[in-house]
Design a protein around this nucleic acid. Sequence first.
DNA 1: CGATGGATCGACTTTACTTCA
DNA 2: AATGAAGTAAAGTCGATCCAT
Length: 278
Amino acid sequence: MGLDDSCNTGLVLGLGLSPTPNNYNHAIKKSSSTVDHRFIRLDPSLTLSLSGESYKIKTGAGAGDQICRQTSSHSGISSFSSGRVKREREISGGDGEEEAEETTERVVCSRVSDDHDDEEGVSARKKLRLTKQQSALLEDNFKLHSTLNPKQKQALARQLNLRPRQVEVWFQNRRARTKLKQTEVDCEFLKKCCETLTDENRRLQKELQDLKALKLSQPFYMHMPAATLTMCPSCERLGGGGAGGDTAAVDEETAKGAFSIVTKPRFYNPFTNPSAAC
DNA sequence: CGATGGATCGACTTTACTTCA
DNA sequence: AATGAAGTAAAGTCGATCCAT
């Protein structure tokens, strides 16, 4: 398309009705004849993707601890201070924090309680905070495949000491975050495109005005044979015309008027055809 | 072949928790 | 130190879709 890799940032840009590669593995895991259209969409839109996306998990605790260290109880939420949790996270953020960590209870911990998960907690919805280890492992798995089949989910849940549902939710939210992030990147890129095109449009409008003014002030050009006009061969710019405009920008009215200079119809592409450089 | 139910997804929302001024 | 607003992420809900029965 010519828009690809425009900014050399590792972004891959596509435009048109191309399949979005999101969850492609999931889409193609189904029978080849019935590709799930939820994952391969044909959108008439600009698509942009990071070649090596990395998502930074901001928080996390318990780098050195076990995947799940069940502590006090389900009811612990209201009994701890936020300062304590904060400290714990800070401590566990770096390396070699095992010692300090040992002294700190894991305030909120995921646990496997497949059978009677909701019985004790009643309606009090408690918030799981994944440990750093859990997050890292989930992240690694996500890099391998952004969706999980039931077996993978089970295995991962077992490995992480979480419920399969929790693994599933994590992957769902993770995909959502990826998509959101991608949308933001797309948005920024389109904003830049818009700005570039606006600038170019402004420049061309000015050029057009200059040419019109030139046409009015120098009517003798009307009688000059086109062949006598000198032009820059590369950009078709008039060699001795004062305003120095790009004649490709000349509108129909002007084109069929004074300067019978044949110009190639061009579609301006701000990335592959930076006319400003001419 | 159509109906049905379960599984899974994305989209959107709610809520528990954290961070920061 | 306490507090409230804003941000973040886990979890809930809902509708759509696929697939086996």
